[in-house]
């Protein structure tokens, strides 16, 4: 069964991001929402971890949350932007959703 993992915490504040990466299996999808969207940018302390995740998982970022925070630029190559319709679609394409709060 495939899992959609959502993370809503800044990787610089809480360990939700690290724990999600520990649990997300190859082939699964990760969606960054709310304060987790900061992880989608190039040149941060966690960009290497995100790039490593992209090797065998799909990483998405919720564009409206990125826009809201004024940082919709310099995204890590391979991080895919989705809107809310895309968020809904991801939940239909996976069997379960795990929210890393």
């Amino acid at each position: 069964m495939s899992i959609l993992h959502t993370i809503n915490k800044s990787p610089f504040e809480k360990d939700s991001f690290q724990t999600c990466l520990r649990y997300a299996k190859a082939g699964s999808s990760i969606l960054l929402i709310e304060d987790a969207v900061y992880a989608a940018r190039e040149g941060t302390d966690v960009s290497d971890a995100v790039k490593a995740a992209i090797q065998d998982k799909s990483v998405f970022v919720l564009l409206p949350d990125l826009d809201a925070r004024g940082l919709n630029s310099n995204l890590i190559n391979g991080v895919q932007s989705v809107d809310y319709a895309g968020f809904v679609k991801l939940t239909t394409e996976n069997d379960t959703v795990q929210s890393w709060l």
Binding site: N8, I33, E34, P64, D83, Y84, A85, F87, V88
Partner: peptide, 14 residues
């Protein structure tokens, strides 16, 4: 976030 998700889900016919 939940409200926006619910709206989008309803718009998609769910």
């Amino acid at each position: 976030t939940a409200f926006n998700f619910v709206q989008a889900a309803l718009d998609a016919g769910h």
